[in-house]
């Protein structure tokens, strides 16, 4: 039943109470669980600002029926790295100038982590295609591509 269910978010079991049936995962994360890092900008899967991992797959949180995500592993921007220590991707976005207003940034961080897990050395075209579901209105994308490439290079160097 939808009135009460448990979601597994960032490694913890989180209880959701008194929710309405149609609430999206994005809404529940933000308004019921207080995880404000995932952003909503279109509510129809056209911007990627709400990107989270659902059983390791990058998805739009706005298009996931929250009550239907019981039993699935959910990772949000708050869970992608410890708060005190930015991940290499997060730091690269900051250093490369890939952050302006920052509204699209959490979704892009999630998408970049997901991309680099699957493809550690993506070509520029691969980066463009894999991140094409994340719209940024400020940067024109150039610095974001640079940030992704910086991480890929650094990770290769670290191996």
């Amino acid at each position: 039943m939808s009135e009460f269910y448990v979601l597994h978010v960032n490694g913890a079991a989180r209880e959701v109470r008194d929710a309405a049936a149609g609430e999206s995962l994005l809404f529940v994360l933000r308004e019921r669980l207080g995880l404000m890092g995932s952003k909503g900008a279109c509510e129809q899967g056209e911007c990627g600002s709400c990107s989270v991992l659902l059983d390791d797959q990058l998805v739009c949180g706005c298009l996931v029926l929250a009550a239907g995500a019981v039993g699935q592993r959910i990772v949000t921007i708050e869970g992608v790295a410890p708060l005190g220590a930015p991940s290499d991707v997060q730091q690269a976005f900051v250093d490369a100038g890939a952050v302006q207003c920052g509204f699209c940034t959490p979704g892009l961080i999630m998408a970049t982590h997901s991309l680099l897990e699957r493809s550690p050395a993506p070509s520029e075209m691969e980066i463009r295609e894999e991140l094409s579901g994340n719209v940024c209105r400020c940067t024109g994308y150039g610095r974001i591509i640079d940030a992704v490439q910086r991480v890929a290079v650094a990770r290769r160097g670290a191996q």
């Binding site: 939808s2 049936a21 149609g22 999206s24 509510e43 129809q44 899967g45 739009c60 706005c62 298009l63 996931v64 029926l65 009550a67 239907g68």
Partner: peptide, 26 residues
């Protein structure tokens, strides 16, 4: 009936569809 939800949730979020009972088949 909801599988990926990528069509249904667009309508729900916009208030164009009010869901009561849902069967997830994904």
């Amino acid at each position: 009936l909801v599988a990926g939800g990528t069509d249904v949730m667009v309508e729900v979020n916009a208030g164009h569809r009010h869901v009561a009972d849902v069967v997830m088949v994904n």
